[in-house]
C-alpha cells in the first residue's frame, strides 16, 4: 500500500521548516519512522501526501557533552545512545531504556526524538528523559524554545508538537556528577503488543559520604495518560538514609500514591501495583550503587 507520495530527505532545520510551511499541513516530519510508518500501514493514521525525513540533518544527529550538560540531537538513534560510552556513564538510565527498545533493526533506525514526539505514556526512552529532567528544544510557529520535557505530553499519543508544522530539535540534561546515578528497568509480557506493562527510571543524588539521598527523580509509566514524576516519593527520599528501610518506605508510599489501571491485554491494576514495588526495588538500589562510583567529568 502506498503510504506517502513525496519524500524529502532534508539537509537542514531551515529546509525542513520551509517544506512544512510550503506544504501547509500536508507534509509531516518523519524521523526513524518505526512507529509512524507502521501506524499508517495498520490504518491508525491516514496515508501522508508528503514526508520530510530529518534523520540526515547533521545538527539533529549529534551527541555532545558540554561540561556538565549533555545535548542530544532528536534524531540520534537508540543504537547510538546505547553504544555511547559517555552516555553509559553520564545518563545510564537512558542507555538502559534505549537498549531494550525493539531489536537491533529498530534501534538502528528509531530515534529518541521520535520516541518523545510519539507521546506514548510509557515510551522507554521518554521515561528516562523524564527522570533526567531533560528539556527539549522545539520550533513552534517558527520560534525556537527550550521546554521541560513533560510539557510536550498532552495526552496518550498527543504531543504539543504538530508534526506537520513543528520540529523537535534536541534535548539537554545534566550529566551525572559524582554521587549521582540512574537506572531503568521495565516489566514486559511475552504476549501481545510490545509495550511495557510498567517502566521505571530513577535518578538519585547522594550526599558527600553516599549515606543519604540528597535528591531523587522517579518516573514510573504508564500510570496516567502522560508520563509523570512520582514527586511524593522523590520528596520523601530527600534527606533519608540510603538504606533498606528507606527503600521499603519508598515502595509503600509509591504503591499508595500510584493508582495504575487495568489495560486490556496488558496488565491488571493489582498486577501493575505489584510491579511498582518490584521495579522500585530493582531500580532504586541500582541507581544508588552507581551514584557511589560516578567519577567527576574532568577525570574522564
Amino acid at each position: 500500500m502506498q503510504l506517502w507520495n513525496r519524500y524529502f530527505l532534508a539537509s537542514s532545520v531551515d529546509e525542513t521548516l520551509e517544506l512544512l510551511l510550503q506544504y501547509d499541513g500536508q507534509a509531516r516530519i518523519i524521523a526513524g519512522g518505526t512507529d509512524l510508518l507502521i501506524e499508517m500501514r495498520e490504518g491508525h493514521r491516514p496515508p501522508q501526501p508528503v514526508l520530510v525525513d530529518i534523520t540526515a540533518i547533521p545538527a539533529l544527529t549529534t551527541i555532545e557533552q558540554d561540561n556538565d550538560q549533555i545535548i542530544l540531537g532528536a534524531c540520534v538513534t537508540h543504537a547510538r545512545i546505547t553504544h555511547s560510552t559517555a552516555l553509559q556513564k553520564r545518563a545510564t538510565c537512558l542507555v538502559e531504556s534505549c537498549g531494550v527498545v525493539g531489536g537491533p533493526q529498530v534501534r538502528n533506525v528509531g530515534t529518541i526524538g521520535g520516541n518523545v514526539a510519539h507521546a506514548l505514556p510509557a515510551g522507554d526512552g521518554t521515561t528516562s528523559l523524564v527522570a533526567l529532567d531533560a528539556e527539549a528544544e522545539v520550533v513552534i510557529d517558527g520560534e525556537r524554545h527550550w521546554r521541560p520535557i513533560l510539557e510536550l505530553f498532552q495526552g496518550p499519543g498527543v504531543s504539543l508538537l504538530d508534526s506537520t508544522r513543528d520540529l523537535l530539535v534536541r534535548f539537554r540534561f545534566q550529566a551525572h556528577q559524582p554521587h549521582e546515578g540512574s537506572a531503568f528497568d521495565r516489566i514486559m509480557r511475552p504476549q501481545g503488543v510490545a509495550l511495557p506493562i510498567l517502566g521505571c527510571a530513577v535518578w538519585v543524588r547522594l550526599n558527600a559520604d553516599n549515606s543519604h539521598y540528597e535528591a531523587a527523580r522517579i518516573c514510573i509509566a504508564p500510570v496516567g495518560p502522560t508520563p509523570r514524576r512520582i514527586t511524593a516519593v522523590e520528596n520523601m527520599l530527600a534527606g533519608c538514609p540510603a538504606t533498606e528501610d528507606t527503600l521499603e518506605a519508598a515502595v509503600a508510599l509509591a504503591q499508595e500514591v500510584i493508582k495504575p489501571r487495568t489495560s486490556k491485554y496488558r496488565a491488571t491494576a493489582p498486577y501493575r501495583s505489584e510491579m511498582v514495588a518490584v521495579l522500585l526495588r530493582r531500580a532504586l538500589p541500582a541507581a544508588v550503587e552507581r551514584a557511589k562510583t560516578t567519577m567527576p567529568v574532568t577525570s574522564q
Binding site: Y7, R41, A56
Partner: peptide, 9 residues
C-alpha cells in the same frame, strides 16, 4: 528492516 525503510532515505 527494509520493509519500513523509505527507499529515498
Amino acid at each position: 528492516d527494509s520493509c519500513v525503510y523509505p527507499a529515498f532515505r
